[in-house]
Design a protein around this nucleic acid. Structure first.
Lengths: 213, 213
DNA sequence: GTCTATATCGGGATAGAC
DNA sequence: GTCTATCCCGATATAGAC
């Protein structure tokens, strides 16, 4: 028992623990998003994270718990941009920046988008409560703002739900269906020129649909 | 060895065989589309198809072969509506009917849409050749038509690829993300009223984007 | 063609030493 | 906290009787 075997200060330990946990979640996101929950093995994830399977199960009680932890982290990031649709904004500018923010996420965090997509397509067995609670509430709040803009004549009439779905669908398509986009166009969002064209094209479509410009 | 044990006429046998195969593929589509390739078990599929697992493996050499057979059948149906974008049509009418056809498919064959989505999101390990071949060619042909319409001033300027992607993304969203749509709106495409509103909303968005009406 | 039985294997999870 | 060894179950696939 020497001084060197004594525990390090608590704050340092916690910071290390959080960094470790983050890197494990990153590895799990990598694997889960390309093979799904059932297609992925703990061995793969552990290898990518640089530890043993047993060790991974020391930090997470089960495979499903790990999956769920990844999923929750994804959802938080994924909904964030919608916050920027603010009642005080100019509608055209607000939609333009929302479209850009979502496409930026599709470019920079495509795996998060894909994992979310996989979960929803399979019926959201684990995420359904989050959809019917927080997500629904957030969408309703933003739909109210859009409805107000419409009532005030600042944008043309358009069902807020369908409008939001359309923006989600288009922007996430470039992450979720990236291989198809690449098969057809030979390009993806990592190409700066293609990215800017995609942003401009989507903004134009949405704004035209709202009767703006 | 009585006459009754003799083989039935070949045509009858083949028709029965095709019906049996179809019902097996239907069952497989059901299961694969809700759990993915790895999440599905042959037992589940066999049970839904009304035969034993052993028997199923008598007709299909392996699980993956069954999966691939389902996938190919899906792709054919899925691309079909795009054929209707014909150079001889009136652009506005052509897009309107294409949007309706795609949303009808999302309503009537949501599982096909979801299976296709699952495969693409995971990188299309089995379907990539089809994407880079037939699908790419079909899209290019239709993009040329759209480009001609644009050059002739019959529709506003819009990148054909992005336009097609947007239509795909929006229309398939209502099948692939149905649980999310339901969580937010409490409705789905099986509701006739909701279906018609979705069609109208999507048509309006696309046509506005093209500068039509 | 359909059944029962079984070989075989991958992978999630646990035990226990260190 | 990390390792080795192992248990155990579900699932694909095959063998062989009928």
């Amino acid at each position: 028992m020497t001084g060197r075997s004594m525990p390090v200060p608590a704050r340092r330990r916690r910071r290390d623990g959080e960094a470790r946990r983050e890197s494990e979640l990153d590895a799990a996101l990598d694997i889960f998003s390309t093979t799904g929950l059932h297609g992925a093995s703990l061995d793969q994830i552990a290898e990518r994270a640089g530890l043993s399977k047993t060790n991974l199960l020391y930090y997470f009680p089960s495979k499903e718990a790990l999956y769920l932890a990844v999923l929750r982290r994804v959802l938080a990031v994924w909904l964030d941009p919608l916050q920027s649709l603010d009642a005080g904004s100019e509608p055209a500018a607000a939609f333009r920046s929302y479209v850009r923010a979502k496409l930026t996420l599709s470019r920079d965090a495509p795996q998060a988008s894909r994992l979310f997509c996989l979960e929803i397509v399979q019926g959201a067995p684990l995420l359904r409560p989050e959809l019917e609670g927080p997500l629904r509430d957030l969408v309703e709040a933003k739909a109210a703002i859009i409805r107000d803009w419409s009532a005030a004549g600042r944008i043309g009439p358009h069902d807020p739900h369908h409008l939001i779905f359309s923006i989600w669908a288009i922007t996430q398509h470039y992450a979720d269906f990236a291989v198809q986009v690449e098969a057809v166009t030979g390009r993806n969002l990592d190409d700066p020129d293609f990215f800017e064209r995609t942003v401009a094209s989507t903004q134009a479509l949405i704004l035209a649909g709202l009767g703006l410009r």
